[in-house]
Amino acid sequence: MHSAYRITLALLGGVMLASAHAQMQASMPPSTQHAASPADTRQNVDFPPMLKQKTLATMRMHLQGLAEIQQALAEHRFDAAAQIATMKLGMSSMHGDQMTEEARYMPPGMRHLGAQLHQQAGEFAVAAQDAAVTGDSAKPLLALSRMTQTCVACHATYRLH
């Protein structure tokens, strides 16, 4: 197995674990959240309950997109990986009013990381389309790693409350 691919698998596994942990924490009663995670120093971001649920669903869609991209890359389906990135993580994945509403509640750093992720998805799509011609997966794997790192940075810093 190519070492860059193994690294990407490890990074995605970490994001999936962090997302699962965050989802578990979000569903726990407040009294048990602190007992389960006393060292959680992430910044709470207060969202109205319905918007929080929609935002978490969008984040799960992004995570599913990362998993689908990884599968497509493993199968050398670079055009499919580019399309997935565009539809599930790129600017096309934004949900109009929801995006505007979310931005009202996000601290500037969180907004920056979100915008960065969507921009990186576009960069990944270009790298994957190039790989469809060249067969070289190094650039899309690096771009996927950058997207994953952005997800990790956001989830390590912020917590929807």
Rank of each mutant, 00 (worst) to 15 (best):
H62Q: 12
P107S: 14
A121L: 03
H95L: 12
Q33S: 10
F78K: 07
R60W: 14
A80P: 01
D97T: 13
E102V: 01
R104I: 03
Q43P: 06
V126R: 14
Q64W: 02
Q71L: 11
Q71W: 01
A36R: 08
P30Y: 00
L63F: 13
G122I: 07
L66N: 03
G109H: 05
M91F: 06
I84D: 01
A67Y: 01
T58Q: 09
F47G: 00
A131N: 10
E68P: 02
S37F: 11
D97V: 10
A57K: 09
M91N: 02
L51N: 05
P38L: 04
G90T: 04
A121H: 00
M106P: 07
M50K: 10
P108H: 12
E68F: 03
A36P: 06
T100R: 05
A121S: 01
G109L: 09
M61H: 13
A74S: 12
R42C: 10
H76M: 15
G109P: 00
M61K: 14
Q43A: 15
Q98W: 11
G122N: 01
A128Y: 10
A81Q: 03
P30N: 00
T100M: 13
D97M: 14
V126H: 14
H34I: 09
P108D: 10
D97W: 14
T86G: 02
S31P: 00
A80G: 05
P38I: 08
Q116V: 13
H62V: 09
M61T: 15
G122P: 06
A67H: 05
Y105D: 05
H76G: 10
E102C: 02
T100E: 08
V45D: 07
A121M: 01
A67G: 07
E75I: 06
E123Q: 15
I84E: 00
A132K: 13
R77H: 09
L73A: 00
L73G: 03
T41I: 04
N44M: 15
Q33A: 15
Q119D: 12
A132M: 06
Q53L: 11
R42D: 06
G96K: 08
E75Y: 13
L56N: 13
Q119T: 14
V45R: 06
G90K: 03
A85F: 04
H62L: 13
A36N: 04
A128S: 07
Q70D: 08
I69Y: 03
D97S: 14
Q83A: 14
E101A: 09
T32N: 07
Q70W: 00
D79M: 04
K52L: 11
S93A: 09
T100H: 05
H95F: 08
N44K: 14
E123C: 09
R104L: 09
G65V: 06
K88P: 04
Q83H: 12
M106R: 01
Q43E: 15
Q71C: 11
L117Y: 11
Y105I: 01
T58K: 04
M99F: 09
I84P: 03
Q83K: 13
I69L: 01
H76L: 14
Q98A: 06
S31C: 00
